[in-house]
């Protein structure tokens, strides 16, 4: 039973690696999600597979019955899923913000946008001349104004 699951893990992992190697960072994040799923399943298999016996302690007993599933990998995976969930959401928020301020999520275009002196406006439009990205759905809300006064000081290229 372990072998086909292990094979599945390999295939999903491979698909994830393919996506991670893309220049588009959104695909990169999707790749990470696939890999993290594959890793979680591999931890599950590492605890060995058992069928039809959940590791619950029956009323009145002090230990789960013999032959029930290994509960530890499930606890590990739950923790890993929680962490992965948080990291993925953070990465997506970061990408969204990057897209708004720099106008691209392609790794090869990011450095050029950084040196572009023309500002990207807060609706995510690229500077004139640069390929215009598709507008993000705004839902009619006003974007929050960040502490823009601090940016010049911390951009590394701030002129004295």
């Amino acid at each position: 039973m372990e072998a086909p699951v292990a094979l599945t893990v390999g295939i999903v992992f491979g698909a994830g690696v393919y996506l991670v190697l893309q220049r588009n960072l959104l695909r990169f994040v999707f790749g990470l999600i696939l890999i993290s799923g594959a890793v979680n399943v591999s931890i599950f298999v590492a605890g060995r597979l058992t069928r039809g016996a959940s590791p619950f302690v029956p009323e009145g007993a002090v230990a789960p019955p013999a032959g029930s599933a290994n509960a530890l990998p499930q606890a590990l995976i739950l923790t890993a899923i929680v962490i992965g969930f948080g990291l993925t959401v953070f990465a997506i928020v970061l990408l969204l913000r990057t897209y708004e301020r720099l106008g691209t999520v392609r790794t090869d275009e990011l450095p050029e946008r950084l040196d572009d002196p023309r500002p990207v406006d807060r609706n995510g439009d690229a500077p004139a001349g640069a390929p215009r990205p598709r507008p993000m759905p705004q839902g009619g809300t006003v974007p929050r104004t960040g502490p823009s006064g601090t940016d010049a000081r911390d951009d590394g290229e701030g002129a004295p």
């Binding site: 993290s36 970061l94 990057t98 911390d154 951009d155 590394g156």
Partner: peptide, 22 residues
């Protein structure tokens, strides 16, 4: 604070460290 250079550097930092975690 989402400065532009910060975001550009942050994306690299986040991406590589996520791979390391996996």
């Amino acid at each position: 604070g989402s400065g532009r250079a910060q975001l550009e550097g942050g994306v690299k930092y986040v991406a590589v460290n996520l791979v390391s975690s996996l």
